[in-house]
Design a protein around this nucleic acid. Structure first.
Lengths: 210, 210
DNA sequence: TAGATTGTTAATCGATTAACAATC
DNA sequence: TAGATTGTTAATCGATTAACAATC
């Protein structure tokens, strides 16, 4: 059914999901691909093609049922069930992530926060006790998280990632501005606002030229 | 010289820059594209092609001078000069961003933080006083920022973005999980860790099948 | 000079979009 | 039935990578 789904498709799927949640809040029953294009800017053929990797979702002449499509996309992305997750690093960013309610709303369940600083270990962060990152292996044997967010400084990100993988983590969301080297079986996604800002900065200058 | 540079190229340029800074810290004088591939995973031809949009950078038979390449990429991305920047929203995420030193290191200069909450306005956040977002237009007339980071809740992100644009902002880094509608001349980049997590979540399930 | 590595052209690969028969 | 819109095929577009002459 899904022989090599492009990553771009998966990213858009997450966008569609978000959009459908809004439509549902607005009590809309159905939506057509043309209307999706008008409201999100994603090409209508693109939208239909993206969905086609996973089966048939709409009714010709009618469109897509908002609630049904939303549920099916959630199931495809596996965000229809709780996903235990840990955060590595309780600095500014790590703290912000632990306190972010959007995660829970999307069924990502924060089960542990780790840091290496003696002044932080044992302290409370929202409703979590900060754990010693040196105990990651033992702790995650209990917690059973497969997703970890890397929110430590660049200098220690690689070794923290290595430890996380040894502790059973299968997927990493990396906020540190370095390229993590990991085994093939491990999935990594990078979030780099410095990179994003650099791209903005480039376009700012290009536009000014015109 | 640069007739439509792919966005992917610009993103990688930021990665190269980061990598070159590390190389310089390690006192390396030159590097070859093959070595870049070995250390970053980016295909060597890709690396050379990316640079070729902007001129010639290396010496055949020798490679690239680390310091020179670093400087030239910084100039291309315009991160060789201070860029004034504002943050909209002083919640968890906004606060973390304001406190993030990496921004200053990359010449992004935080010049203002805005929020709408009466309990926050006037309070100190690191070395900034939180300003009333209702005064954005007047304030940014003074501050002169062209880049804004949108770190407000989804429900108000669009109206805040509209205000920012009216205040002279030309580029937006959007953390809110919605699609911002903006005029053509405005550049937007989105950072969505919910989206990233959804992609991870998908692959986690796919791998488990195998 | 011989060996290494560049910058660039051409080939390949993959993703986006247009077009349309099928169908509600 | 007529009109609308789907799912999918085929055409287009763009990005990645391999190959190689130029050159240090």
């Amino acid at each position: 059914m899904n022989p090599k789904v492009p990553i771009a498709t998966l990213e858009r799927l997450a966008t569609y999901l978000r959009f459908l949640i809004d439509l549902q809040a607005m009590r809309l029953e159905t939506i057509s691909s043309t209307e999706v294009e008008r409201q999100t800017g994603v090409n209508a053929a693109q939208f239909r093609k993206d969905l086609s990797y996973f089966g048939e979702f709409g009714k010709p002449g009618v469109g897509y049922n908002v609630v049904e499509l939303q549920n099916r996309i959630a199931r495809i992305l596996k965000v229809d069930r709780d996903q235990p997750m840990i955060v590595l690093g309780a600095g500014n960013l790590g703290s912000a992530l632990v306190g972010y309610h959007g995660l829970r709303e999307h069924r990502f369940q924060m089960v542990g926060v780790f840091d290496s600083s003696p002044t932080k270990i044992g302290a409370r962060l929202w409703d979590h006790e900060i754990l010693d990152i040196a105990t990651l292996r033992e702790s995650n044997a209990q917690l059973g998280a497969r997703i970890a967010i890397v929110a430590v400084p660049a200098a220690v990100a690689q070794s923290v990632a290595d430890e996380a993988i040894a502790s059973g983590i299968k997927a990493l969301l990396n906020f540190a501005p370095i390229i993590l080297r990991v085994p093939n079986r491990i999935v990594v996604r990078n979030v780099s606002f410095l990179q994003e800002l650099a791209v903005l900065s480039y376009y700012l200058a290009v536009d000014a030229q015109k």
